[in-house]
C-alpha cells in the first residue's frame, strides 16, 4: 500500500498540484557557448538536464556520412547521482537508455531539415543531472531548445510531456512517485498542432481511456511550447538589443 494519497478525493496530487497542472518549468539557452554550437539547461520539476548540440560538422567516421542528408545522433548520459540513491553502474549501455536514444532520434529525424545539411553530423549530447519522473518528455524539450540555439533549421517546436492515468483520471506530468504507481504515456507534440511525433506507451493502458489521456497531454504540450517560446523570444530580444547597441 502506497504511503501517499496519489490523487485525493479533493482533487490534489501528492505534490499539491491539480490533475491538469504542469510542474515548475525553468529553461535557458546558450548556457555552454564555448563547449558547443547550441546548448540549453532545463529544469522541469526536479528533472534537471543539460543539452549540448555540436554540428552540423564533418563526421569523424566516413561511414557516418550520408551524401543526401545530415545524420542525427543522440546520446543520453544519465549520471550516477541523478536518482535519490546513487547507482553503482553507469547507465551508458543500458537497454532502456539505448531505447530512449533511438526514440529521440526518430522523433527529431522528421522535424529537423536534415536535407539542407548533407554529408554532416549533428551530435546531440544530453546530461541528466537529476531526475524525477517523466524524463523522456524533458529530454525532448531540452533537445528542441538546444537545436534552436544551434540555429539548426526545424519545421516546428517539439514539446514533450508525460501523462499518467490514475484509475479514470488522467494526471498531467507525472513525477517519480506517481510514475511508480500508475501507467503513463509520453507524448512529443509538433508545434501548435495535434500531430504527435512521439507516442511512447511503456505500460498497459486501456484503449478506451487513451483519448482523454492524449487530450490533456496535447494541451499540456502546447503550454510547454508557449513557455519555451516566451523564453526564446525574451532571449532573442536581448540579443537584438545587444547587437544594435
Amino acid at each position: 500500500m502506497s504511503r501517499f494519497e496519489i490523487y485525493s478525493p479533493e482533487g490534489l496530487r501528492v505534490d499539491g498540484r491539480r490533475w491538469n497542472e504542469l510542474r515548475r518549468f525553468d529553461c535557458s539557452i546558450n548556457t555552454h557557448s564555448h563547449a558547443a554550437d547550441g546548448s540549453s539547461y532545463l529544469e522541469q520539476g526536479n528533472n534537471k538536464i543539460i543539452t549540448l548540440v555540436k554540428g552540423p560538422k564533418e563526421p569523424s567516421l566516413r561511414s557516418q556520412m550520408d551524401p543526401t542528408k545530415a545524420l542525427l545522433k543522440v546520446s543520453v548520459n544519465i549520471t550516477k547521482f541523478s536518482k535519490t540513491e546513487r547507482s553503482k553502474t553507469s547507465h551508458k549501455n543500458e537497454r532502456r537508455v539505448l531505447e530512449i536514444q533511438t526514440a529521440l532520434t526518430r522523433t527529431f529525424n522528421k522535424n529537423v531539415m536534415l536535407h539542407i545539411y548533407p554529408r554532416t553530423l549533428i551530435d546531440i549530447e544530453i546530461h541528466v543531472l537529476q531526475q524525477d519522473g517523466g524524463l523522456v518528455g524533458t529530454l525532448i524539450n531540452g533537445i528542441t531548445l538546444a537545436l534552436i540555439d544551434a540555429g539548426i533549421a526545424m519545421f516546428d517546436y517539439i514539446s514533450g510531456v508525460s501523462v499518467g492515468l490514475y484509475d479514470t483520471t488522467p494526471l498531467l506530468e507525472v513525477n517519480s512517485l506517481e510514475e511508480n504507481v500508475m501507467s503513463s504515456v509520453t507524448l512529443g507534440v509538433v508545434g501548435k498542432t495535434e500531430k504527435l511525433s512521439l507516442l511512447l506507451v511503456e505500460d498497459k493502458i486501456p484503449l478506451d481511456r487513451l483519448e482523454s489521456v492524449l487530450a490533456i497531454g496535447i494541451a499540456g504540450a502546447h503550454r510547454v511550447r508557449e513557455l519555451m517560446d516566451s523564453e526564446l523570444r525574451k532571449r532573442a530580444e536581448k540579443r537584438v538589443a545587444n547587437s544594435t547597441n
Binding site: D15, G16, R23, R24, N46, T84, E85, D132, L177
Partner: peptide
C-alpha cells in the same frame, strides 16, 4: 542502514 537525501517538490496554492 544507509542514509539518502530525498528532495520532493511541494506546490502551495
Amino acid at each position: 542502514g544507509r542514509a539518502s537525501k530525498i528532495v520532493r517538490e511541494h506546490y502551495l496554492r
